[in-house]
Amino acid sequence: MQTVSMNVNGEPKSGEVEDRTLLVEFLREQLRLTGTHVGCDTSQCGACVVHVNGVSVKSCTMLAVQADGGDVTTIEGLANNGELHPMQQAFKDNHGLQCGFCTPGMVMSAIDIVNRNGSDVDEATVRKELEGNICRCTGYHNIVKAVHAGAKNMGG
């Protein structure tokens, strides 16, 4: 067992984990932050994407101990005083989800895409960079639309 401490959504959190505990298991099962989903558990689907130290990672493919001392942001950390993050609002406005299972990972990846490519990111880049996030409902068109709208809103 190891003790891990990290900032999760701006708050210091710590816990006892097995060495093999995945970051997503720590977030979901110990911190009860169940917004981060496990879809495939093989780093393909992207439902588990969170930000660690400012960049997107698949939390099913990182150990909790590897995030020790780091800053973690999950989907629960985006809204501000009950107001949705511009990217969350854009998914809502553009019907960017149907069943919603992939959505937390989609939103976290989308914000990462805007952080790296700017708010005028083009459609080809959005489609290419969403390749690590799988949605089985929407056919992606409205997700891409949502990412664009969210990107514009994030840019102010």
Binding site: G46, S56, V57, G132
Partner: peptide
């Protein structure tokens, strides 16, 4: 290589 989240690790 892979996708953006994989490339970050």
């Amino acid at each position: 290589i892979g996708d953006p989240a994989v490339r970050n690790r």
